[in-house]
Amino acid sequence: MNKKKSIFQLLTEKPWETDQIEADNDHQGRTVNITKQKLGLRTIMAASTVLFSLFIVAYSDRMLVNDWRNMPEPWLLWFNTGILVISSIVFHQATKYAEKEIFDKTKNCLFFIGFLAYSFLIGQLIVWYQLMGTGYYATSNVANAFFYLFTTIHGLHIIGGIYFWGKTTSKFIKRSLKKEDINNLIDICAVYWHFLLVVWLVLFGLMLSS
């Protein structure tokens, strides 16, 4: 028997048959072998992916109309992208340290990530400010409007991330949780950070290439 049942095997079980009944009685009632928080994060990420994909579809459709005027890409955006990349790397490190139970280093990483996240948000705000200073308002062209919309939605996701980062960090410092539990939380935040990096890279790439 395969270690993992495919979804098709699963859906073709005949729950009323004797053999199946015996196999089923051993079941522990859990579908996949990960924590509920992890699965929860995946669900949210799936929904977010749909959200961003639809934005991208709307963008690509609207782009074809001839009133479209491309926007300049300020160099600061590259800088902000860099910040996001670094924070993802640091988060990766943090999970490694947490795994090895190096308390101080983990803590430093976590703090640094917070700093980077806030810097990213401030950086994005400065980009907005610069663009508006040079007359690129949301109303002047729909390309600009998309830019403001994308950065806002992405920024809101980051703010959500910061909220959970804050909770996790404070729990970590207070050492109020068991080791696996806190590592689980740090892992989850890290995955979310990587996800937001990928989302940003896709959005940024889309805006660069059009």
Binding site: E13, D24, G29, R30, T31, V32, K36, G40, T43, I44
Partner: peptide, 20 residues
């Protein structure tokens, strides 16, 4: 929705397979 999905997938009683 997050709750409904995770609860159905992960918090079922012992012996409660998906097809049950």
């Amino acid at each position: 929705g997050l709750n409904y999905i995770i609860t159905v997938l992960q918090l079922r009683a012992r012996g409660m397979t998906l097809m049950r």
